[in-house]
Protein backbone atom coordinates (compact mmCIF):
# COMPACT_ATOMS: atom_id res chain seq x y z
CA UNK A 1 0.00 0.00 0.00
CA UNK A 2 2.65 2.44 1.11
CA UNK A 3 4.96 1.31 -1.63
CA UNK A 4 2.21 1.89 -4.14
CA UNK A 5 1.66 5.37 -2.77
CA UNK A 6 5.34 6.21 -3.08
CA UNK A 7 5.40 4.85 -6.59
CA UNK A 8 2.40 6.97 -7.38
CA UNK A 9 4.02 10.13 -6.08
CA UNK A 10 7.15 9.30 -8.03
CA UNK A 11 5.07 8.87 -11.12
CA UNK A 12 3.30 12.10 -10.39
CA UNK A 13 6.58 13.84 -9.98
CA UNK A 14 7.89 12.43 -13.23
CA UNK A 15 4.75 13.51 -15.00
CA UNK A 16 5.06 16.89 -13.39
CA UNK A 17 8.67 17.26 -14.50
CA UNK A 18 7.82 16.11 -18.01
CA UNK A 19 4.97 18.56 -18.20
CA UNK A 20 7.16 21.32 -16.85
CA UNK A 21 9.73 20.57 -19.51
CA UNK A 22 7.09 20.70 -22.22
CA UNK A 23 5.79 23.91 -20.72
CA UNK A 24 9.29 25.40 -20.58
CA UNK A 25 9.90 24.35 -24.15
CA UNK A 26 6.64 25.87 -25.36
CA UNK A 27 7.33 29.02 -23.37
CA UNK A 28 10.73 29.25 -25.04
CA UNK A 29 9.14 28.73 -28.42
CA UNK A 30 6.47 31.31 -27.58
CA UNK A 31 9.09 33.82 -26.52
CA UNK A 32 11.13 33.24 -29.68
CA UNK A 33 8.16 33.77 -31.96
CA UNK A 34 6.93 36.71 -29.89
CA UNK A 35 10.09 38.51 -31.01
CA UNK A 36 8.49 38.78 -34.47
CA UNK A 37 5.56 40.66 -32.96
CA UNK A 38 7.79 42.81 -30.79
CA UNK A 39 8.03 45.77 -33.22
CA UNK A 40 4.24 46.06 -33.32
CA UNK A 41 3.97 45.86 -29.54
CA UNK A 42 6.72 48.44 -29.01
CA UNK A 43 5.04 50.67 -31.56
CA UNK A 44 1.67 50.50 -29.83
CA UNK A 45 3.12 50.94 -26.35
CA UNK A 46 5.32 53.84 -27.39
CA UNK A 47 2.87 55.70 -29.58
CA UNK A 48 -0.47 54.88 -27.95
CA UNK A 49 -0.23 53.67 -24.37
CA UNK A 50 2.48 56.01 -23.10
CA UNK A 51 0.84 59.07 -24.73
CA UNK A 52 -2.51 58.11 -23.19
CA UNK A 53 -0.89 57.74 -19.75
CA UNK A 54 0.75 61.16 -20.21
CA UNK A 55 -2.64 62.69 -20.97
CA UNK A 56 -4.30 61.16 -17.92
CA UNK A 57 -1.36 62.11 -15.68
CA UNK A 58 -1.11 65.67 -16.95
CA UNK A 59 -4.83 66.20 -16.52
CA UNK A 60 -4.20 66.07 -12.76
CA UNK A 61 -1.29 68.53 -12.89
CA UNK A 62 -1.74 72.22 -12.16
CA UNK A 63 0.65 75.08 -11.58
CA UNK A 64 1.53 73.78 -8.10
CA UNK A 65 1.57 70.02 -8.49
CA UNK A 66 -1.38 67.63 -8.27
CA UNK A 67 -4.79 69.20 -8.51
CA UNK A 68 -8.34 68.71 -9.66
CA UNK A 69 -8.45 72.29 -10.88
CA UNK A 70 -8.45 71.28 -14.54
CA UNK A 71 -11.59 69.25 -14.00
CA UNK A 72 -13.19 71.99 -11.87
CA UNK A 73 -12.57 74.49 -14.68
CA UNK A 74 -14.11 72.28 -17.37
CA UNK A 75 -17.73 73.44 -16.90
CA UNK A 76 -16.72 77.00 -17.75
CA UNK A 77 -15.39 75.70 -21.08
CA UNK A 78 -18.77 74.22 -21.90
CA UNK A 79 -18.33 70.70 -20.53
CA UNK A 80 -21.96 69.95 -19.68
CA UNK A 81 -23.28 71.00 -23.06
CA UNK A 82 -20.52 69.05 -24.79
CA UNK A 83 -21.26 65.94 -22.73
CA UNK A 84 -24.99 66.10 -23.44
CA UNK A 85 -24.41 66.76 -27.15
CA UNK A 86 -21.90 63.92 -27.43
CA UNK A 87 -24.36 61.53 -25.78
CA UNK A 88 -27.24 62.73 -27.97
CA UNK A 89 -25.29 62.38 -31.20
CA UNK A 90 -23.84 59.00 -30.23
CA UNK A 91 -27.07 57.40 -29.04
CA UNK A 92 -29.18 58.95 -31.79
CA UNK A 93 -26.80 58.03 -34.59
CA UNK A 94 -26.37 54.51 -33.21
CA UNK A 95 -30.11 53.87 -33.06
CA UNK A 96 -30.74 55.20 -36.58
CA UNK A 97 -27.82 53.20 -37.94
CA UNK A 98 -28.85 49.95 -36.29
CA UNK A 99 -32.47 50.33 -37.41
CA UNK A 100 -31.76 51.20 -41.04
CA UNK A 101 -28.85 48.75 -41.26
CA UNK A 102 -31.10 45.96 -40.06
CA UNK A 103 -33.66 46.93 -42.70
CA UNK A 104 -30.95 46.88 -45.40
CA UNK A 105 -29.65 43.52 -44.22
CA UNK A 106 -33.17 42.05 -44.23
CA UNK A 107 -33.69 43.36 -47.77
CA UNK A 108 -30.33 42.04 -48.98
CA UNK A 109 -30.98 38.58 -47.58
CA UNK A 110 -33.92 38.10 -50.00
CA UNK A 111 -33.54 37.53 -53.70
CA UNK A 112 -34.79 40.38 -55.88
CA UNK A 113 -34.02 41.99 -59.21
CA UNK A 114 -31.29 44.59 -59.07
CA UNK A 115 -29.81 43.21 -55.85
CA UNK A 116 -26.25 43.59 -57.08
CA UNK A 117 -26.74 47.22 -58.08
CA UNK A 118 -28.41 47.94 -54.75
CA UNK A 119 -25.62 46.39 -52.71
CA UNK A 120 -23.02 48.37 -54.68
CA UNK A 121 -24.97 51.57 -54.01
CA UNK A 122 -25.32 50.80 -50.32
CA UNK A 123 -21.62 50.24 -49.69
CA UNK A 124 -20.57 53.32 -51.65
CA UNK A 125 -20.45 55.72 -48.67
CA UNK A 126 -17.74 53.52 -47.15
CA UNK A 127 -15.41 54.72 -49.89
CA UNK A 128 -16.20 58.42 -49.52
CA UNK A 129 -13.94 60.36 -47.21
CA UNK A 130 -15.43 61.57 -43.92
CA UNK A 131 -14.43 65.17 -44.63
CA UNK A 132 -15.86 64.96 -48.16
CA UNK A 133 -19.21 63.69 -46.90
CA UNK A 134 -19.22 66.32 -44.14
CA UNK A 135 -18.65 69.01 -46.77
CA UNK A 136 -21.42 67.71 -49.03
CA UNK A 137 -23.90 67.59 -46.15
CA UNK A 138 -22.98 71.12 -45.20
CA UNK A 139 -23.94 72.21 -48.73
CA UNK A 140 -27.16 70.22 -48.62
CA UNK A 141 -28.30 71.69 -45.31
CA UNK A 142 -27.14 75.29 -45.81
CA UNK A 143 -29.84 77.72 -44.73
CA UNK A 144 -29.32 79.81 -47.87
CA UNK A 145 -28.81 77.95 -51.11
CA UNK A 146 -29.12 74.51 -49.53
CA UNK A 147 -30.51 71.57 -51.46
CA UNK A 148 -32.60 70.28 -48.55
CA UNK A 149 -34.44 73.58 -48.37
CA UNK A 150 -34.86 73.76 -52.12
CA UNK A 151 -36.47 70.31 -51.96
CA UNK A 152 -38.76 71.45 -49.13
CA UNK A 153 -39.80 74.57 -51.04
CA UNK A 154 -40.44 72.63 -54.24
CA UNK A 155 -43.05 70.48 -52.46
CA UNK A 156 -44.64 73.56 -50.91
CA UNK A 157 -43.13 73.48 -47.43
CA UNK A 158 -41.32 76.28 -45.63
CA UNK A 159 -37.50 76.28 -45.58
CA UNK A 160 -35.78 75.50 -42.28
CA UNK A 161 -32.71 77.17 -40.81
CA UNK A 162 -30.96 73.90 -40.05
CA UNK A 163 -28.06 75.35 -38.09
CA UNK A 164 -30.19 77.73 -36.03
CA UNK A 165 -30.80 75.50 -33.02
CA UNK A 166 -28.61 73.00 -31.20
CA UNK A 167 -30.92 70.10 -31.80
CA UNK A 168 -31.32 70.64 -35.54
CA UNK A 169 -27.54 71.12 -35.94
CA UNK A 170 -26.98 67.87 -34.08
CA UNK A 171 -29.67 66.30 -36.25
CA UNK A 172 -27.70 67.22 -39.37
CA UNK A 173 -24.54 65.73 -37.82
CA UNK A 174 -26.45 62.57 -36.92
CA UNK A 175 -27.88 62.25 -40.41
CA UNK A 176 -24.46 62.68 -42.06
CA UNK A 177 -23.01 60.13 -39.69
CA UNK A 178 -25.86 57.76 -40.48
CA UNK A 179 -25.14 58.13 -44.19
CA UNK A 180 -21.43 57.52 -43.84
CA UNK A 181 -21.51 54.63 -41.38
CA UNK A 182 -24.72 52.67 -41.90
CA UNK A 183 -23.15 50.61 -44.74
CA UNK A 184 -20.59 49.12 -42.37
CA UNK A 185 -23.26 48.17 -39.83
CA UNK A 186 -25.44 46.77 -42.62
CA UNK A 187 -22.56 44.60 -43.85
CA UNK A 188 -21.92 43.33 -40.32
CA UNK A 189 -25.59 42.48 -39.76
CA UNK A 190 -25.90 40.97 -43.24
CA UNK A 191 -22.99 38.69 -42.38
CA UNK A 192 -24.83 37.66 -39.22
CA UNK A 193 -28.15 37.11 -40.99
CA UNK A 194 -26.72 35.09 -43.84
CA UNK A 195 -25.03 32.73 -41.41
CA UNK A 196 -28.41 31.70 -39.95
CA UNK A 197 -29.63 28.36 -41.33
CA UNK A 198 -32.73 28.77 -43.54
CA UNK A 199 -34.29 25.71 -41.92
CA UNK A 200 -34.77 27.85 -38.82
CA UNK A 201 -37.33 29.96 -40.65
CA UNK A 202 -38.93 27.07 -42.47
CA UNK A 203 -39.62 25.31 -39.20
CA UNK A 204 -41.13 28.47 -37.75
CA UNK A 205 -43.29 29.00 -40.85
CA UNK A 206 -44.56 25.44 -40.59
CA UNK A 207 -45.44 26.13 -36.98
CA UNK A 208 -47.50 29.07 -38.20
CA UNK A 209 -45.34 31.97 -37.01
CA UNK A 210 -46.01 35.24 -38.88
CA UNK A 211 -43.31 37.49 -40.30
CA UNK A 212 -43.33 39.75 -37.26
CA UNK A 213 -43.13 36.88 -34.79
CA UNK A 214 -40.34 35.28 -36.76
CA UNK A 215 -38.42 38.55 -36.62
CA UNK A 216 -38.87 39.00 -32.86
CA UNK A 217 -38.36 35.39 -31.78
CA UNK A 218 -35.89 34.05 -34.32
CA UNK A 219 -33.99 36.79 -36.13
CA UNK A 220 -33.31 39.13 -33.24
CA UNK A 221 -32.10 36.59 -30.64
CA UNK A 222 -29.94 34.86 -33.23
CA UNK A 223 -28.13 37.96 -34.38
CA UNK A 224 -27.88 39.51 -30.90
CA UNK A 225 -24.17 38.63 -30.51
CA UNK A 226 -23.24 40.13 -33.85
CA UNK A 227 -25.41 43.16 -33.11
CA UNK A 228 -23.47 43.66 -29.91
CA UNK A 229 -20.26 43.65 -31.94
CA UNK A 230 -21.74 46.29 -34.22
CA UNK A 231 -22.79 48.27 -31.15
CA UNK A 232 -19.30 48.02 -29.69
CA UNK A 233 -17.49 49.04 -32.87
CA UNK A 234 -19.84 51.81 -33.88
CA UNK A 235 -20.53 53.02 -30.34
CA UNK A 236 -16.86 53.58 -29.65
CA UNK A 237 -16.44 55.41 -32.97
CA UNK A 238 -19.57 57.45 -32.25
CA UNK A 239 -18.08 58.77 -29.01
CA UNK A 240 -14.92 59.52 -30.98
CA UNK A 241 -16.80 61.46 -33.66
CA UNK A 242 -14.70 64.48 -34.60
CA UNK A 243 -14.14 65.43 -38.25
CA UNK A 244 -17.83 65.32 -39.16
CA UNK A 245 -19.08 67.79 -36.49
CA UNK A 246 -15.97 69.96 -36.87
CA UNK A 247 -16.58 70.46 -40.59
CA UNK A 248 -20.39 70.69 -40.43
CA UNK A 249 -21.01 72.78 -37.29
CA UNK A 250 -17.57 73.89 -36.09
CA UNK A 251 -17.55 74.61 -32.35
CA UNK A 252 -21.28 75.36 -31.95
CA UNK A 253 -22.74 73.14 -30.61
CA UNK A 254 -19.67 71.71 -28.90
CA UNK A 255 -19.07 68.02 -28.51
CA UNK A 256 -16.33 66.50 -26.35
CA UNK A 257 -13.82 66.11 -29.17
CA UNK A 258 -14.26 69.64 -30.50
CA UNK A 259 -13.91 70.91 -26.92
CA UNK A 260 -10.60 69.05 -26.65
CA UNK A 261 -9.48 70.31 -30.05
CA UNK A 262 -10.44 73.92 -29.31
CA UNK A 263 -8.27 74.06 -26.19
CA UNK A 264 -5.26 71.86 -26.84
CA UNK A 265 -3.10 74.24 -28.81
CA UNK A 266 -2.46 76.89 -26.16
CA UNK A 267 -0.28 76.03 -23.19
CA UNK A 268 -2.65 77.72 -20.73
CA UNK A 269 -5.53 75.45 -21.58
CA UNK A 270 -3.70 72.30 -22.63
CA UNK A 271 -4.28 70.53 -19.32
CA UNK A 272 -7.95 71.53 -19.46
CA UNK A 273 -8.15 69.79 -22.80
CA UNK A 274 -6.36 66.78 -21.28
CA UNK A 275 -8.98 66.64 -18.52
CA UNK A 276 -11.73 66.53 -21.15
CA UNK A 277 -9.78 63.87 -23.05
CA UNK A 278 -9.49 61.78 -19.87
CA UNK A 279 -13.25 62.02 -19.39
CA UNK A 280 -13.83 60.86 -22.97
CA UNK A 281 -11.43 57.97 -22.44
CA UNK A 282 -13.31 56.97 -19.28
CA UNK A 283 -16.68 57.13 -21.05
CA UNK A 284 -15.44 54.91 -23.87
CA UNK A 285 -13.95 52.38 -21.47
CA UNK A 286 -17.14 52.19 -19.41
CA UNK A 287 -19.24 51.86 -22.56
CA UNK A 288 -17.09 49.05 -23.97
CA UNK A 289 -17.20 47.12 -20.71
CA UNK A 290 -21.00 47.40 -20.54
CA UNK A 291 -21.48 46.26 -24.15
CA UNK A 292 -19.06 43.35 -23.83
CA UNK A 293 -20.67 42.20 -20.57
CA UNK A 294 -24.23 42.50 -21.88
CA UNK A 295 -23.87 41.21 -25.39
CA UNK A 296 -21.27 38.50 -24.96
CA UNK A 297 -19.28 40.10 -27.76
CA UNK A 298 -16.19 38.63 -26.16
CA UNK A 299 -16.92 35.09 -27.34
CA UNK A 300 -17.10 36.38 -30.87
CA UNK A 301 -13.99 38.47 -30.67
CA UNK A 302 -11.89 35.30 -30.40
Amino acid sequence: MRKGAIKETEQNQEQFLARRNVFKKSMKKNLYYLLFALPVLIYVIGLAIIPAITVVYDSFIGRNGYTLANYMALPSYGLYGALINTMMVSVGALLIQLGIALAIAMVLIRPFKGKKAFSTLVIMPLGISTVVSAFVFSIIFQAVGGYANSALVSIGLRPIDWFNTNSSSLGVVMFSDFWKNTPLVALILYGGLSSLPPTLYEAASVDGAGAFNRFIHITLPNIAPIMSIALLVRGVSEFNIFALPLVIVGYHPLILNTLIFENYSSLQTRNISYAAATLLLAIIMIYSIIVVRLGGARDHVN
Binding site: A48, A52, T54, I260, R270, L281
Partner: peptide
Protein backbone atom coordinates in the same frame (compact mmCIF):
# COMPACT_ATOMS: atom_id res chain seq x y z
CA UNK B 1 -5.85 50.06 -27.73
CA UNK B 2 -7.30 51.17 -31.04
CA UNK B 3 -10.52 52.19 -29.28
CA UNK B 4 -8.79 55.05 -27.50
CA UNK B 5 -9.89 58.43 -28.80
CA UNK B 6 -7.59 59.60 -31.58
CA UNK B 7 -7.20 63.03 -30.03
CA UNK B 8 -6.12 61.58 -26.67
CA UNK B 9 -3.21 59.88 -28.39
CA UNK B 10 -2.50 62.42 -31.13
CA UNK B 11 -1.84 65.47 -28.93
CA UNK B 12 1.03 63.97 -26.89
CA UNK B 13 2.47 62.37 -30.04
Amino acid sequence: INMMPGLVVAIPI
